[in-house]
Design a protein around this nucleic acid. Structure first.
Lengths: 258, 258
DNA sequence: GCAAAAGTGTTGGCGGTACACCCATGT
DNA sequence: ACATGGGTGTACCGCCAACACTTTTGC
């Protein structure tokens, strides 16, 4: 198939285009049905999933590489993408014992194929917060499937990718405390209760409705719209949108949020 | 000289021992005379200073590499060493314009010498807090001098090392807010005013003496010793030492410090 | 009218900041 | 005695958490 040709080219000549031993892994978080989901790819021939990742081109910024991966896997760009940690253990590739066999990708006729992609990799971790509905997951050439997984119910993951996800979640929760979150996770217009659900999901704990509203409004990054949303047999909540100027300012300067 | 032989070996065969395109840079901070100092090396033949750094061995953890660099440059080990960011801009090597000429190290008879060390590097930044007095700076093979510099009065730095230092300081100040600092920066026994000076130096702002003491003691990581320190014509302050068990616990769990 | 959810206001406690007083020490 | 810095206590203020009441909407 065409894919196999691409893979062969990547394996044999990839080291000319990309920096060896360096990879970028993206923890792409989407929010849907009051769940935080993470985008994962299923590898060919192995019952194992992995974070969308990629390599850094010889003359490409690492940040750019991360954006490129995000774009290639989700079709969205210009997103909040945050580097959070670099994973440099030489054994990280063997961390999940049951998966210490490398995928068929690295074998040929049962024999292991030595190539640059089977070597040790130091991986730079990024996380992104994306609007679930705007994303159409696309598997890469090495994968047969790409889909969302509830972060509380993950499948078997390759290498140390479970640890990378844990780290990313920790970083996101930390961010929540000091910077606004939601611009890229919610639709253009949303209600305060919806925003609160998002916060509760990320923090995985309940928040007080009244205190949340007070606090959130006092930050001055929201604009109340003249419209309301109809939500069935209940009072209609106001719709809000982010004041993007102030939102980005708060992103830069930070604040305190309990 | 002997040094030149080592360098030649490094340039010609280093890529066999080390992962190419990857380096580790350490922002080693020492505290002395109410100043925060950073350890810098002066390069051979160029009026330019750089952070102590090194490469990652083919089968070495990145963390281990950072510890090794720290050990080789300062003679101290088992230190609090914290990864804080990875710098991956392909142009970082040219960032300081006046220094865009590479050191003589990469030239031979006026002609540029092409080798793995002159290529692009992605650098993983670590910071360490060390006790000034315990450190005997040792230049590496590429440097002629190694010494402390006041962070407010730095010399011309190579590449993007000024930016790396800024990032590190930011990370240290952030750490100060959530984790204890001082165990590796102060002698075994110290007074509360001394600890306060340290905090003021890192944050570069004055703190209220009484509030500082209340807050610090309430954290429960200090043990008041029966002795006092004689400081001339003034009341003798108590000596304290860190309760290492609780200190490390606070390191892990964190707290809030305004 | 009833149930469920949204909008708004009040209170109390904790922690942080600001500030005042007394104590110890060497000259 | 006096100057200088250290130890301790108090008052105020703001923020956050806990909590109650009213309003809206569809059935």
């Amino acid at each position: 198939m065409k894919d196999n040709k691409v893979i062969h080219e990547l394996i044999t000549n990839g080291h000319l285009k990309y920096i060896p031993h360096i990879s970028v892994d993206c923890v792409i978080l989407g929010y849907h049905a009051n769940q935080l989901n993470v985008l994962l790819n299923k590898w060919k021939d192995v019952e194992v999933w992995s974070l969308p990742g990629g390599y850094v081109e010889r003359n490409e910024s690492v940040d750019t590489a991360a954006h490129r991966v995000l774009w290639e896997r989700t079709g969205v760009d210009k997103l909040f993408l945050q580097q959070f940690y670099t994973f440099g253990d030489p054994d990280r590739i063997n961390m999940n014992r049951r998966l210490n066999r490398l995928p068929v990708l690295f074998q040929e006729g049962g024999k292991e194929l030595h190539n640059w992609m089977a070597e040790r990799f130091i991986s730079i971790g990024y996380y992104a917060l994306v609007e679930y509905s705007k994303v159409s997951p696309r598997p890469d050439h090495l994968s047969v499937e790409s889909r969302w997984w509830d972060i509380h119910d993950l499948p078997a993951l390759i290498f140390d990718h479970d640890r990378i996800i844990s780290h990313a979640l920790h970083a996101v929760r930390l961010q929540l405390k000091y910077q606004p979150v939601g611009l890229s996770l919610l639709p253009e217009k949303f209600t305060l209760p919806e925003l609160q659900k998002l916060y509760e999901t990320i923090l995985s704990r309940k928040l007080d409705r009244r205190n949340f509203q007070k606090k959130m409004l006092s930050l001055g990054i929201l604009r109340r719209l003249p419209e309301r949303k109809t939500i069935g047999p209940h009072r209609s909540p106001f719709l809000y949108s982010f004041d993007k100027r102030k939102y980005n300012q708060a992103l830069k300067e930070g604040y305190g949020f309990a």
